[in-house]
Amino acid sequence: MTDFATLLRGKPLMAILRNVPVERAVALAETVWASGLGAVEVPIQTPEAVECLRAVASAAAAHGAVVGAGTVVTVDQVKLAKEAGAVFTVAPGLDLDVVAASAAAGLPHLPGVATPSEVHHAVKAGCTWLKAFPAGSLGANWLREVRGPFPDVRFVATGGIGPHNAQDFLAAGAQALGVGGAVTREGGLDELLAVLRA
Rank of each mutant, 00 (worst) to 15 (best):
189 L>M: 07
51 E>G: 00
122 A>K: 00
135 A>Y: 12
96 L>K: 03
135 A>P: 12
46 T>I: 02
41 E>F: 08
82 K>M: 11
136 G>Q: 08
35 S>W: 03
104 A>N: 10
34 A>N: 05
161 I>V: 12
42 V>E: 10
184 T>Y: 13
111 P>E: 06
82 K>P: 14
125 A>R: 02
195 V>D: 02
160 G>S: 03
32 V>Q: 06
52 C>D: 01
51 E>T: 01
55 A>T: 00
130 L>K: 12
144 R>F: 09
188 G>V: 13
61 A>F: 01
152 D>M: 07
176 A>C: 13
172 A>P: 12
147 R>E: 14
122 A>L: 04
95 D>F: 10
88 F>S: 13
129 W>V: 04
38 G>A: 10
77 Q>C: 06
16 I>D: 07
155 F>G: 02
176 A>N: 11
105 A>P: 08
48 E>V: 00
64 G>C: 15
11 K>G: 06
89 T>C: 13
189 L>P: 04
185 R>Y: 15
55 A>M: 02
176 A>H: 13
107 L>G: 14
94 L>D: 05
119 V>A: 05
126 G>L: 08
102 S>M: 03
18 R>H: 08
101 A>M: 03
92 P>N: 04
153 V>F: 05
97 D>W: 05
77 Q>V: 10
155 F>Q: 08
181 G>W: 13
58 S>D: 13
163 P>Q: 03
36 G>A: 03
26 V>Q: 06
91 A>T: 12
33 W>Y: 08
25 A>P: 05
80 L>H: 06
178 G>W: 11
157 A>D: 01
10 G>H: 12
52 C>K: 00
185 R>D: 15
184 T>I: 15
181 G>Q: 13
67 V>H: 02
146 V>T: 07
81 A>N: 06
94 L>Q: 01
53 L>E: 03
122 A>G: 11
60 A>Q: 00
94 L>M: 03
17 L>Y: 07
48 E>T: 06
162 G>M: 02
77 Q>M: 15
110 L>W: 04
181 G>V: 11
21 P>G: 08
37 L>K: 02
43 P>A: 10
186 E>I: 12
3 D>Y: 01
27 A>N: 03
192 L>M: 10
23 E>M: 07
76 D>A: 15
12 P>T: 05
64 G>M: 15
167 Q>P: 01
184 T>W: 15
147 R>G: 14
173 G>I: 04
126 G>M: 09
151 P>C: 03
92 P>E: 07
10 G>L: 04
36 G>M: 05
155 F>P: 02
157 A>H: 00
89 T>L: 08
12 P>M: 04
17 L>S: 05
79 K>S: 13
123 V>S: 04
165 N>H: 04
175 Q>N: 07
7 L>T: 14
162 G>C: 00
7 L>N: 14
49 A>V: 01
44 I>T: 09
142 W>Q: 05
185 R>T: 15
38 G>R: 05
73 V>E: 10
19 N>C: 06
73 V>R: 01
187 G>W: 10
110 L>I: 06
84 A>I: 05
79 K>P: 03
38 G>F: 11
185 R>C: 15
3 D>S: 12
175 Q>R: 14
73 V>L: 15
10 G>N: 12
73 V>C: 13
78 V>G: 11
55 A>S: 02
135 A>G: 11
38 G>M: 06
14 M>C: 10
48 E>R: 10
127 C>D: 10
